[in-house]
Design a protein around this nucleic acid. Structure first.
Length: 113
DNA sequence: ATTCTGACGTGGG
DNA sequence: CCCCACGCCAGAA
């Protein structure tokens, strides 16, 4: 399971995102010690289909846009999942994004590398 | 082996 | 302050 590599770190953090909350690629990359590798976080989400229990729909970009929507099954699955958790989405953007944003750095102090 | 392309974010000009 | 360019690094072609 935990191989301590980049992908597993990403998955570890994403699994901790609480129901009804969302996080961003950048904040996750920053938290696992690879600031600037936000793009790779997205790539890890792309590969997360091989894993289970990875709430990839709770990861959006820094403006709250559902940039990964197109990679989910169906046309609107990502949005549907978020709305089923009480998060409102308008024009591919989470409304009131700031109040749903969950920053790993503020919540997962125990995890270092 | 080399090039290109991303579910992004930031810094330089 | 807006826009362009580049870093990040794994896979595909």
């Amino acid at each position: 399971m935990s191989k301590n590599n980049f992908f597993d770190k990403v998955y570890f953090v994403v699994k901790q995102i609480p129901y009804g909350r969302v996080s961003t690629y950048g904040s996750i990359a920053n938290y696992i010690g690879s600031p600037g590798s936000s793009r790779m976080v997205g790539w890890a989400m792309n590969a997360s289909h091989f894993r289970v229990n990875i709430p990839a729909h709770r990861v959006v970009n820094r403006f709250g846009f559902l940039t990964g929507k197109h990679h989910f099954q169906g046309t609107n699955l990502m949005q549907d999942l978020l709305e089923s958790e009480g998060i409102n989405v308008i024009d591919n953007q989470i409304s009131n994004f700031n109040s749903f944003f969950w920053d790993p750095s503020d919540n997962l102090e125990a995890y270092k590398n």
